[in-house]
């Protein structure tokens, strides 16, 4: 193994090798995560609803998802006749790639980061915006009115929730004085997690994150009861799988960022950093899953009202209050 790495390193140079290896690892992580999450959701749903969830394949039904994947891979990839082919094909990939890029920026422990960018947080948000591209490309190219409506909903929802997301994160940036994710984690050393100082910011962040990832109760772009399956109505087999993968990856990424921003990142006693981080991430994911099975889906106008009338003003107020208190503390 190390020999292989060295030989690759010889060809590509140090940092590129690191990058390639990192992405390979990330790909593995993503796939496993997606499979785990599907199982996890079904289990939590079962638990919430007083039933069992997947049981038959593997321990606790863990192999169920793997088999589902095999099924999907084996299905025929039907391309509807009147779709915009290139766009239709490109859409799932575009949806997936930014999430991957985000994951590459997460500090998995104090010294385990794929790219330690100076403006890491900004890059995260920049790529976060990109993932929307996949959704609207898919929705638009499908030549299906449910798909288009889903895409439109997704776009407006994303635009709306991008603001509180950014604003709540900015409060943290103000407190730590940097955009670098590692430094943000360092600033929370000694269990001075931001969640203790910025509970409101975290709440806003989580709500917005759920909306950004089109999770219930904000899943109106793919509301089954209204739009069949929303923007990916027309996608069969692998196409659907990749969208699915992208969504769960994106969820993971957002929760990872949430953990970094509010829960002290990879810091924690006894256990190694990455484990702590995964624990925190899955705690957040658990919250999101719980929310999905707890709250009813919002109407579109309620969704917009929530963002523009409550979250944005609240986030702004929080930001100003933070700035004010910081100034007060400094002087």
């Amino acid at each position: 193994m190390s020999g292989l790495i060295d030989s690759v390193q010889g060809v590509l140079g140090g940092w590129l090798t690191e990058l390639v290896i990192g992405f390979v690892l990330l790909a593995v992580l993503i796939t496993l995560n997606a499979m785990f999450m599907v199982w996890f959701e079904r289990k939590v749903a079962g638990w919430v609803q007083g039933r069992h969830g997947p049981l038959h394949h593997g321990p606790f039904g863990l192999a169920q998802t793997a088999l589902d994947v095999v099924k999907l891979l084996g299905k025929e990839f039907i391309i509807p006749s009147k779709v915009d082919r290139p766009v239709f094909l490109l859409a799932p990939i575009i949806a997936f790639l930014p999430a991957l890029a985000i994951l590459s920026l997460i500090p998995y422990s104090a010294d385990m980061t794929l790219t330690d960018a100076q403006s890491g947080l900004l890059i995260v948000f920049a790529f976060g915006g990109l993932s929307l591209g996949g959704i609207f490309m898919g929705g638009w190219s499908s030549n299906n009115k449910y798909a288009l409506l889903g895409a439109i909903r997704a776009v407006s929802q994303n635009i709306a929730y991008e603001l509180p997301l950014l604003l709540s994160a900015m409060a943290i940036v103000l407190m730590s004085g940097t955009l670098n994710l590692t430094e943000i984690v360092d600033a929370q050393a000694g269990y001075r997690w931001n969640v203790f100082f910025q509970p409101l910011a975290m709440l806003i962040f989580l709500i917005s994150a759920a909306a950004e990832t089109n999770r219930a109760p904000f899943d109106i772009p793919e509301a089954e009861s209204e739009l069949v399956a929303g923007f990916h109505t027309e996608y069969p087999a692998m196409g659907f799988a990749v969208f699915f993968l992208a969504e769960y990856t994106y969820m993971f990424a957002v929760c990872a960022i949430g953990a970094v921003l509010f829960l002290g990142g990879a810091a924690g006693p006894l256990l190694p950093g990455p484990v702590w981080l995964l624990l925190k991430v899955y705690f957040l994911l658990f919250l999101m899953v719980m929310a999905r099975w707890t709250y009813p889906r919002l109407r579109f106008d309620q969704l917009m009202n929530l963002a523009w009338k409550y979250l944005i003003p609240l986030a702004l107020g929080n930001l100003m209050l933070t700035a004010f208190v910081l100034k007060l503390v400094q002087t």
């Binding site: 920049a126 915006g129 929307l132 609207f136 638009w140 439109i152 635009i159």
Partner: peptide, 14 residues
């Protein structure tokens, strides 16, 4: 990226 791509382009798509 953030504004042109994430903002303007998306708005245009909309």
């Amino acid at each position: 990226l953030l504004i042109f791509l994430g903002g303007i382009t998306v708005a245009m798509v909309f």
